[in-house]
Design a protein around this nucleic acid. Structure first.
Length: 595
RNA sequence: GCACCCAUAGCUCAGCUGGAUAGAGCGUUGCCCUCCGAAGGCAAAGGUCAGAGGUUCGAAUCCUCUUGGGUGCGCCA
């Protein structure tokens, strides 16, 4: 039996890092030099440490001498098979095969599939989605929703206490525009009669479809006509001042919109803890403004109340934070600041993340600085998680063929249609019921969209190409689902044959490589967490699926001659499936039983 | 004008705290199903990492400049 005196309880790279770090420390050098990573030259060894070269400067010794001392110290290590020095001082490490077996067993028994919890869990509010009342969700909301949802899943997974908030756009000028538009179309409604004493009807005078038609019309009219715009502004002020008819009408807008939004988010598989909106903090604004005035944080400038946030030592021309417009009305900056106050009282988070289009970077910088300056919230605990836009094939923000914005619901339907066509074309998943086939098509469509979005670097723009996303070959969501489904199929077959997973041991190279891939999850999860970038999770899922495919092609599982090999390989397959599904749960996709 | 994001294979993109021969996927050209789902595997071709300096034993990565593209910049959200 292999030597099992040492338990790992960390990734293989981390354990080797500790061993190498100790060897550096023994030479009086910083243990951080011992960092071991997966090798860039897997033909030489699976892991490498480059610390000796960096150490040469500190120690004033040739790097090879340092590397040799490290190698000598680790020569008899119970985890290391070979340790070799190459080139100027690269230390190449090959772990003993039982290290892989031990690590596989650990990951298998681990609730987090090998990932690690954060050291100190924090309370985190994640603000994302950000849809508006009266406007249907469109592709512009897609990234915020998908990235934000993945982040809330990941932060929870790693142990933080997360509160997600959709932060509905329900309170600005757009509401006044809408109210005045409805007044034009249906002037006889009681909402516009100031002498009306109520009660107002329970039934909304407008449907979601009506709103979608009325809002763009109102918006365009206000752009063209100044008087029309002033009318909308006045209505906005009246609404915010509590004019009963407007408030009643506004409630209908909100309720009708929310119902539609809930449907969209449900289709996307995105959940929010809170459905708060800008209007919810309206009541906090007068007190906040008073507080800021009395403490001299804000002052009047050109008729408006501002908080200067530009700094002397920087060249950028950051405009001041606008607390109140010259007409006394609040802006979205105002509600964002008030929302910070609200969250401080309600959740008292250690961190607030705003998953919003990168184009709003300046806006958030102003809000964060203002919050800090007012003493409401520390700047370091506020983060704008910006993202690039989704562009069409022409490299410009995505538009439909008609030039309009594509609704989210239509996008999902398009993806599902394509997925269904591909499934039928390939003759896959056709044995189930019509309902099952439809569910599979939808799962594939959603996985295609989400994976394509999340696998891009968060900060860059990306080109939307549905055909590429829904392709079943290559680095796509559907391919990942396929990889998982193939394992599920194998597990069913194993059960039928009475084969059970057993103890994992490593014989073939592909088995070791598969465990190395599984082992990489801890790093992927922490990178994704630290950088607030789910693309590390996507990369990991794909790397793992690829490693499994190689294993699958070269290592017969149920066809293995030896019963112990069969049981070990089946356990590896089961473990891969488990971790794959864990990663899926973090990027919000779901593998069906068959497809 | 100022600030932010970006430029890597024909196309779409990765590249962690600077490390060896810059990686995937698609596409192209071969090969592999009497064998667990070939939506797969193996192999080949394909690169002045936008350009120029600098720091370093070592730069796609860090610094400066230039070019080219995207975005934002006082009372919309």
């Amino acid at each position: 039996m292999p030597d099992r005196t040492t338990r790992l309880v960390a990734s293989i790279a981390d354990i080797l890092t500790r061993r190498a770090g100790a060897a550096f420390a023994a030479q009086g050098l910083p243990d951080s030099l011992g960092r071991v990573v997966e090798s860039g030259r897997p033909d030489l060894a699976p892991y490498q440490c480059n610390g000796a070269m960096a150490a040469a400067k500190i120690a004033g010794k040739p790097p090879r001498a340092i590397a040799e001392a490290v190698a000598a110290a680790l020569e008899d290590d119970d985890l290391i098979e070979t340790i070799e020095i190459a080139g100027p001082g690269f230390i190449n490490l090959t772990p003993k095969t039982h290290v892989y077996a031990m690590r596989a067993a650990e990951i298998s028994n681990d609730a987090l599939s090998g990932a690690e919890k954060v050291d100190t869990p924090r309370g985190v509010v994640i603000d994302f989605g950000g849809p508006n009342v009266a406007k249907p969700m469109h592709v512009g909301h897609l990234r915020s929703s998908i990235i934000g949802d993945s982040l809330q899943r990941l932060f929870r997974f790693r142990g933080d206490r997360v509160t997600s908030d959709v932060h509905l756009g329900d309170w600005g000028l757009q509401m006044g525009q809408l109210i005045t538009e409805v007044a034009r179309v249906m002037p006889d409604l009681p909402y516009f009669d100031e002498s009306f004493t109520g009660p107002y009807p329970d039934e909304s005078p407008v449907t979601m479809d009506d709103l979608q038609l009325l809002y763009p019309r109102a918006s365009a009219a206000c752009k063209e006509d100044k008087a029309r715009l002033e009318e909308a502004r006045q209505a906005t002020r009246d609404l915010q001042a509590g004019r009963a008819g407007y408030v009643a009408l506004w409630r209908h807008f909100a309720a009708v919109s929310k119902a539609a939004l809930e449907t969209d988010f449900a289709a996307l598989g995105v959940h929010f803890d809170l459905w708060k909106g800008e209007s919810d903090v309206d009541a906090l604004i007068p007190g906040m403004v008073e507080d800021l005035k009395s403490r001299g944080v804000t002052h009047e400038d050109q008729g408006a109340w501002i908080i200067p946030v530009a700094r002397e030592d920087e060249k950028r021309e950051l405009p001041p934070f606008l607390l109140l417009k010259s007409d006394g009305a609040a802006l979205y900056e105002t509600t964002d600041l008030a929302t910070i106050l609200d969250r401080k009282t309600e959740q008292d988070p250690d961190l607030i993340l705003y998953v919003v289009d990168a184009r709003q970077a300046d806006h958030f910088e102003k809000v964060f600085r203002a919050a800090d300056k007012a003493g409401y919230f520390d700047r370091t605990q506020l983060e704008h998680i910006g993202f690039g836009t989704m562009n069409g094939p022409d490299g410009k923000p995505f538009k439909t063929r008609e030039g309009g914005v594509l609704k989210l619901a239509d996008l999902i339907r398009m993806a599902t249609d394509k997925a269904r066509a591909r499934l039928e074309e390939a003759g896959l998943g056709q044995e189930g019921s019509a309902e099952e086939r439809e569910a599979v098509a939808k799962a594939v469509g959603i996985a295609a969209i989400k994976f394509a979005d999340l696998s891009n670097l968060r900060t860059t723009n990306y080109i939307f190409d549905l055909d590429r996303f829904v392709a079943f070959e290559g680095k796509t969501g559907p391919y990942l689902l396929y990889a998982a489904v193939r394992i599920k199929s194998m597990m069913r077959k194993a059960k039928d044959q009475g084969v059970a997973p057993g103890e994992i041991f490593i014989g073939a190279d592909e088995e070791a490589a598969l465990v190395r891939a599984l082992d990489g999850f801890a790093l992927a999860a922490s990178e994704a967490y630290d950088k607030r970038s789910p693309n590390y999770l996507c990369d990991h899922a794909f790397t793992l699926a690829q490693a499994f495919s190689k294993f699958y092609a070269n290592c017969p599982v149920l066809g293995a001659e030896d019963e112990a090999v069969k049981a070990s390989r089946l356990a590896l397959a089961a473990l891969t499936l488990k971790q794959l599904e864990t990663v899926f749960s973090l990027i919000g996709i779901d593998a069906p039983e068959r497809m």
